[in-house]
């Protein structure tokens, strides 16, 4: 029997279900739309994204958030496929953080 996937949590003991709602942030909506476009263009498929999440470290998965995980997963998948360059992404991210503004994009 293969190891249980970290996402395979049906039936496990867990605490109260959180009931508070949160509005999506604007960038999260943009991220979902971007992901959907990558799917439409058949550059990624849903099962690849699921697989990338399943390959994340168990501790990371446990403490990750829904949209945080989505971002990490998309980035990892696009790097794996050679569509995005890891260094270029790090550099661009740093430049945006240093500028501290959303206005350059």
């Amino acid at each position: 029997m293969a190891d249980k996937l970290i996402t395979d949590i049906g039936g496990e003991a867990a605490g109260d279900v959180p009931r508070d709602d949160y509005n999506m942030l604007f960038w999260e909506k943009q991220m979902i739309a971007t992901f959907n476009m990558l799917q439409t263009k058949q550059l990624v498929v849903t099962d690849e994204y699921r697989r990338i999440v399943e390959e994340m470290p168990a501790d990371y998965y446990k403490n990750s958030t829904f949209y945080g995980r989505r971002l990490e997963g998309i980035v990892a998948l696009l790097i794996e496929k050679g569509i995005i360059d890891r260094e270029a992404l790090a550099e661009r991210t740093k430049a945006i953080l240093d500028a501290g503004t959303r206005d350059h994009v």
Binding site: M1, A2, D3, L5, D8, G10, G11, R51, E54
Partner: peptide
Amino acid sequence: GKPGHVRTPT
């Protein structure tokens, strides 16, 4: 017993 991505919950 297939390792990796599968959709059959344990």
